[in-house]
Amino acid sequence: MPTFEFAKSSHSSGNGECVEVARNIPTTIAVRDSKAPDGPILRLAPATWAAFVALTRVTR
């Protein structure tokens, strides 16, 4: 089984309160809490992740 390669958002502040996302496996987007790297991982289908990101974009 491939290992997720998590990365923090470029919008993350330095206070350690952020999520990390792994997009290196084509069929799964993985999301975890950066403060608990050994904690639970939310696994999403790429289409679900794309819909979530589209809904969270800030409109200017």
Rank of each mutant, 00 (worst) to 15 (best):
A45T: 04
P26H: 03
R32V: 02
S12D: 13
F4R: 02
F4Y: 15
T59W: 03
S12H: 06
T27W: 08
P26V: 11
V21T: 06
E17G: 00
T48L: 11
L55C: 09
E5D: 15
V58S: 07
N15A: 07
P37T: 08
P2M: 15
R23K: 11
N24Q: 08
T59L: 13
P37I: 06
R57M: 05
E20R: 00
V53I: 13
T3G: 08
P2S: 15
N15E: 12
C18S: 06
V31P: 01
A22Q: 04
N15T: 08
T3Q: 14
N24S: 09
W49N: 03
M1T: 14
P46V: 09
G39P: 06
I29K: 01
A54Y: 08
I25N: 05
P37R: 10
A36R: 11
A22I: 01
G14M: 09
A36D: 13
A50K: 13
E5V: 15
P46Q: 07
T3H: 15
A7P: 02
R23E: 11
V58R: 07
A7L: 12
E17Y: 11
A22Y: 02
T27D: 14
T3W: 05
L55H: 10
G39I: 04
W49Y: 14
C18H: 07
E5Q: 14
L55A: 11
T28P: 00
A50Q: 14
R23S: 13
P26L: 08
P46Y: 07
D33W: 01
A45P: 05
S12Q: 10
L44N: 06
G14S: 11
R57F: 02
K35A: 05
N15D: 15
D33F: 03
L42K: 05
T48K: 05
V58D: 13
S10I: 06
A50F: 07
K35G: 00
A30W: 01
A7C: 09
